[in-house]
Design a binder for these strands. Structure first.
Lengths: 153, 153
DNA sequence: CTAAGACCTGAAGTTCACTTGAGGTCAAGG
DNA sequence: CCTTGACCTCAAGTGAACTTCAGGTCTTAG
């Protein structure tokens, strides 16, 4: 019956500020119908979309990328469990990649402490290109692109 | 003899743009002396500092935090291997934390795919507070604070 | 010595992901 | 009916981390 949620309810249930929800709508991450008076009414699966947005952000994706990912969901019908499962599964590799990059960083840090170079002189830490290369198309570092790299002494 | 580097040399050797190096200097992350004509001259250990900056950024630290960390280095003398080792070692826990947060995220994602909730209804993924709590003081998520949280249906 | 190219400063611009503010409208309880 | 609080829009502001620009100076190879 009350399957339509006001922005305040959505905010309360997701922990996302109303202003952020409006922003997400303006960016095409979620959609909303309108009440007679022009107020937003969100369908229940918006909660799921928003949850997905937050999770994807924690994995390091930009809103642009998240929008693209969400575009894979059906728009006609309410996404099913399988729709979501498929979408979620597609992040597994990404997470695995990020984890291995960090593990590599940790191990390299150890070895760098040992050798004293701290990332200079062909130190693996300072040359993350190979790590990035293994990420395949669309690969990027934890905090955005770090495209250039060193020719360290 | 030529132990002073121009900004261009620093940039070439670190892969960091000259504008970024100037910015780092303005932010107090590195220091530079000046030539007779007013151009920056960097000492050799600036390369090490800059390398550290980049690494710390990949671990998710802000420049403010990195500056604070670098403040632990001696300013009178050139930092020794042990100085750097001490500094580097202090990141190990941080890396371990980040790795475990990501691993948790991955595992939770699996279980959420299984249960179909995708982070709703007391899903662990959607309530990262406990994960964050384990990070101790100064804990933060991968891409900045995500302080608020849900009272999801 | 001179020209090219590296460097300088300070201010302004950029991107991302939002938040804040101003000024006004909608909806629900009493 | 009326008031209060939630909601609306649009524009502008925020902060992090830089980049770009304009206009001018230094340095160095030839």
């Amino acid at each position: 019956m009350e399957s339509e949620l006001s922005i305040g309810e959505v905010a309360a249930r997701t922990g996302i500020a109303p202003s952020a929800v409006r922003y997400y709508e303006s960016e095409g991450l979620v959609t909303a119908s309108r009440s007679a008076g022009g107020q937003r009414r969100f369908s229940r699966d918006t909660l799921r979309r928003l949850a997905f947005v937050r999770i994807a952000q924690r994995v390091g994706l930009t809103l642009d990328e998240i929008r693209d990912a969400l575009a894979g969901l059906p728009t006609k019908r309410t996404p099913t469990h399988d729709d979501w499962a498929e979408l979620s599964a597609s992040w597994r590799p990404r997470l695995d990649e990020q984890i291995s990059v960090l593990e590599r960083l940790r191990d390299d840090l150890d070895s760098c402490i040992g050798c004293g170079c701290l990332s200079l002189e062909r130190c693996a830490l300072y040359n993350p290109d190979d790590a990035a290369a293994s990420l395949g198309p669309g690969a990027r570092y934890l905090l955005g692109d770090r495209p250039s790299d060193a020719e360290v002494e």
